[in-house]
Amino acid sequence: MKKKVLLMGASGSGKTSMRSLIFSNNPASLTSRLGATIDVEQNHVRFLGDLILNLWDCGGQDSFMDSYLSTQRSTIFQHVGVMIYVFEVESRDMPKDLTYYRDCLDALRKYSSDASVFLLVHKMDLVKGDKGTQLERKRRDLQAESGDVEVTVFGTSIYDESLYKAWSRIVHTIIPNAAVLTKHLTTFAEACSATEVILFERTTFLVIATSSPPAPPASSQRALANGAATPGSSSTVVTAPTSPVEDVHKLNATRYERTSELIKALKHSCSRVREEFYALEMELPEFTAVLDEMTKNTYVLIVVHDPTIETAALKINIRTARQKFEELQNDSISA
């Protein structure tokens, strides 16, 4: 299955930089050497095996933008699954950015009416004052500019984990039946006595799915957790933070994207000595964890707080679950 992803925004806003970070494992420090993109650079990124992301990195210089909106209009905007529009947080010419944005939105509505739209307020690292309020203001402005088109806004920077958060959320919407994966990860977490299980895509280390928050040991909550894992109640598993289960662990809210960032950095260090990162196991004061290959295209991180569980046991569990997840993943993508 193929998904066309449009990457648009003004020249210099950082589109090619983020592509090279997420998909080519290049460090942020090297992005300053990138030249402006000429016309459109198309990339086919194999994501989860059979799902292919067809990335259209559209050079943002005015002449190119004008041509996307006129002669190339149908080529660019048809069959789009996702449009990601990148705004520099401190843009030199916001009115112009917005004019192009509205035109692109119109074209997208005409040619791909059911495409989802993500707006990235990028280079947040350059904001001097309060990043939170600045982002809120931008979010409100951009939502107003978007009229009745539903848009999701993220603040991002190539220098921290925010980019992984945004892209994980974006690819999550592309994966069919991600909820089924969540359900099985939740069951798997229970089998491992894990607090949490996270599934990552192999090359990008973007988060594909996570287990639902575990139930507290109280017996009243037990029924609820079992109910959620009952087969047949497919795709109804709650992943939203509004879960009725009380969160007793209060894990760091940025842990998913930080994990992506950390592992990508470690992978990069390994590649610098011509080694390839393969697996990681940790027994830290705070928790025990194993990060290992789950399927051909995914990695799994199992986080356990129970001190009696050993990493060797977790590794055996992963080995046992591999086959099942390989099938699941194929099902979920071809579905």
Binding site: V248, K250, R255, C270, P285, H305
Partner: peptide, 26 residues
């Protein structure tokens, strides 16, 4: 350099999955 980065990674991981209810018990 790899060793240096590895230590950095492990230092950063600890706080990420620290559980307010269970980590202390370990």
């Amino acid at each position: 350099n790899l060793c240096c980065d590895y230590v950095k990674t492990l230092n950063a991981f600890g706080p990420l999955y620290k559980s307010s209810s269970s980590s202390a018990a370990r």
